[in-house]
Design a protein around this nucleic acid. Structure first.
Lengths: 221, 221
DNA sequence: GCGCAAACCGACTGATGGGTCAGTTCCGGC
DNA sequence: GCCGGAACTGACCCATCAGTCGGTTTGCGC
């Protein structure tokens, strides 16, 4: 009575990773459980030893994806001292997700949206997870702002509006990225974001000149 | 030899409307052609007298949806003279699509995104249509800006950046709306947009006081 | 009222794919 | 070496649904 040993957590990971790869390549709907099994090099039945429904695989895959992204953000940001540069870095990382036109990110995002908003979606009953992710990102931005205030880089009054600024910034980044994906190369997303960020920084910076190079008096969003 | 007469265009409309209602209520994937037939009060076979695939129905429904939206925008905007008010009205209309938490709009938008971005999507081969829609909206905003400049409400330098401003504004509106739908009531979208718009207006207005009520010196996005 | 073709219909088909389960393999302990 | 049970497997089951097709209804012209 000593059963065969196997690192279940590791195998689970393998399945999740395979699923994530396929979801981002083909989308959730177009990926069958059989496909995932092949990609993960296990039998289809085995999948169901680790997950009870296809939807559960999606949930696990999405959490894995987000977790990695967050780690990347945090790791990169903590190497940067200057608050203004930090804010720029944050924005740039978001851009990097889509700018070398990466439809994988888009496909994942859209599947997440769909399954969060549809009653029949796999994430619908776990909307709180999505909320928490947003809250996490929001806190990241708020932190940058508050630390910028502490260091004197941003104006103290910013504190009062930090949350609003964060919410708007995150909304903007997602929105412009989506539009970019649809419009393909119709506009230069980096220039758009630079333009926008420049204005944000000019508004929140203690030193009005902080708005980087070529600070024309151009108005902006 | 005189066949039975029927207003094909009208019946087609009926099907499209039924489909649109169901798509916005349940999403495209969860809506079967049989369902559409019932909602439209026709036989399933009849549907295929008017459309050759389910995807074609989606295309028609989306175009109908957008057409109506655009009409509503144009009709409402032309009643407003003042450029600042016009810009505000434009933004407010966008908000009205989601604020009394309307997930129908979201479901439609997401289906559109999905089918535009996925190779297997019904709109993939007609991405140009989606682009054109974006271009149309963009032109609407640019027009407001340019007319505002003509009338002296906005600063002349705005002209140079009008397109960038429009692109960013539209991206922002879509993004913040999506976040709002996911976060449910986590933030006050109207306040967020008011905050953002206030700053935009302050930047582009010729008269710095145009930024409406309570123009604190708060920075913003 | 009759002929005819357009319009309509819903039962049927074929394919797809999520989920199951009976059987097999594997491994550690004795 | 053989027992037990966990781990694994893929053929199978079954629900769903897009799309088809043979048959029916409708209403205009004569």
């Amino acid at each position: 009575m000593s059963p065969r040993y196997v690192d279940r957590e590791k195998k689970r990971q393998k399945i999740v990773r395979a699923a994530l790869a396929l979801f981002s390549r083909q989308g959730y709907a177009a990926t069958s459980v059989g496909c995932i099994a092949i990609e993960a090099e296990v039998g289809k039945g085995t999948i169901y030893e680790y997950f009870s429904t296809k939807g559960d695989i999606l949930v696990a895959a999405v959490m894995e994806w987000i977790r990695k992204l967050e780690m990347r953000y945090l790791k990169h940001l903590e190497t940067i001292e200057d608050p203004v540069e930090r804010l720029k870095a944050f924005v740039e990382m978001s851009m990097d997700l889509v700018d070398p036109l990466d439809q994988g990110t888009a496909r994942l995002s859209i599947d997440v949206l769909q399954h969060t908003l549809l009653q029949s979606g796999a994430l619908y009953k776990r909307r709180h997870l999505m909320k928490e992710i947003h809250t996490g990102m929001r806190k990241m931005v708020i932190n940058i702002l508050l630390e910028g205030i502490s260091s004197g880089a941003f104006r103290p009054e910013v504190a009062r509006e930090a949350e609003k600024i964060a919410i708007n910034l995150l909304g903007y980044l997602d929105g412009i990225s989506l539009h970019y994906l649809i419009s393909e190369n119709d506009f230069d997303i980096r220039e758009q974001i630079r333009f926008s960020l420049q204005n944000v920084i000019r508004m929140i910076a203690a030193d009005p000149a902080a708005g980087t190079d070529s600070v024309s008096a151009t108005p902006g969003f």
